[in-house]
């Protein structure tokens, strides 16, 4: 496989995952706005931070409002991580790696792009927002389904999966990074109504409410939330889950190619360093510091994969 193709697959799946995550975050923000009423604008600033798009937004708008935050995250061409831009980049990457994809996978990506481009061709009204967001998530699911059902489990699939889980781990970690303070033991002892909303927000933004309930019951507690999002082995958006998938796919590549490279050592270290402690040890270390370190290690791994598999040179 061409190095360029590996890079294209990796970025295609990262961008697709990103568009879906952004849609989910907007959904969460909208939900808070509806349940909390007038003082929700502050929440949009935090949502923008979670999506790592607040700097660009601040350049364009003085304050974050519901309207301008949603428009920025959904369809602003100046925001490279807006849903529209992500899907467009994903599709351009898919075009570049067209020969590595099955007909069905390519068609699913292309159809997602055409549909989402059409839905986002004008400002989305509050009334249409739920349908638009659900269409975005649905299109993403179609793509995943087409790939899951038709692609060979070879290096092509490995690079796609690695891209997906890199982006997902990054996303979950960023949500926690923005919201870590509401999970700290000090704040949680009170358990005010406000805290409950925040905790719910965190779970919602990673589609984990149901999963949490099945695992930890109806009581939403910060320690369990942190445990669930960081370390749970079955929760498909937890850091532990994402890392084990990255590790698995990297190891398939290693055995396929018969090559142990630096990125393999790095993912092993990353897993050992971040996934082998219990949640209390993490709180003792400092949740914020832990997440910061994790994000840095993840970015480092991403760069190493680029080098090892010759994405660019």
């Amino acid at each position: 496989m061409l190095g360029k193709t590996a890079g294209g697959l990796f970025w295609m799946s990262r961008q697709l995952e990103r568009s879906e995550n952004t849609a989910r975050m907007i959904e969460t923000g909208q939900r808070i706005a509806l349940t909390r009423g007038s003082d929700s604008d502050g929440e949009w600033a935090s949502i923008l931070r979670t999506a790592a798009v607040s700097a660009g937004h601040a350049q364009k708008y003085e304050t974050a409002t519901r309207e301008n935050a949603i428009d920025w995250m959904l369809r602003d061409k100046d925001n490279p991580s807006s849903v529209l831009c992500s899907v467009e980049t994903a599709r351009n990457n898919a075009r570049m790696v067209r020969t590595a994809l099955t007909h069905e996978s390519w068609e699913a990506v292309n159809a997602a792009y055409l549909k989402i481009k059409d839905l986002l061709s004008r400002r989305v009204s509050e009334r249409d927002l739920p349908q638009v967001l659900s269409a975005i998530r649905q299109r993403s699911a179609f793509v995943r389904g087409a790939m899951h059902g038709t692609l060979l489990r070879n290096d092509i699939y490995d690079f796609i999966r690695i891209g997906t889980f890199m982006e997902r781990a990054d996303n979950t970690a960023r949500i926690l990074d923005v919201k870590y303070y509401v999970l700290l033991p000090m704040a949680s002892s009170v358990g005010s109504r406000l805290d409950n909303v925040q905790w719910e927000t965190i779970l919602r933004s990673v589609s984990a409410e149901g999963g949490y309930r099945m695992t930890h019951g109806h009581k939403i507690r910060p320690r369990e939330i942190a445990q669930f999002l960081l370390l749970d082995k079955r929760m498909p958006r937890s850091l532990n889950f994402c890392c084990s998938k990255i590790r698995a796919n990297l190891s398939y590549l290693a055995s396929d190619y018969g090559q142990q490279l630096d990125s393999h050592a790095r993912i092993d270290t990353l897993c050992r360093r971040f996934m082998s402690h219990d949640i209390d040890a993490i709180f003792d270390y400092g949740l914020h510091e832990y997440i910061q370190d994790f994000l840095a290690a993840l970015a480092d791994l991403s760069r190493q994969i680029e080098i090892d598999y010759r994405f660019y040179e």
């Binding site: 061409l2 360029k4 067209r98 020969t99």
Partner: peptide
């Protein structure tokens, strides 16, 4: 499907950069 940036001359042959 290659582009010029995927290719270079290696040991007297045209070669493509693979993974």
């Amino acid at each position: 499907l290659v582009e010029g940036s995927d290719l270079r001359i290696v040991d007297g042959h045209v070669a493509m950069r693979t993974t």
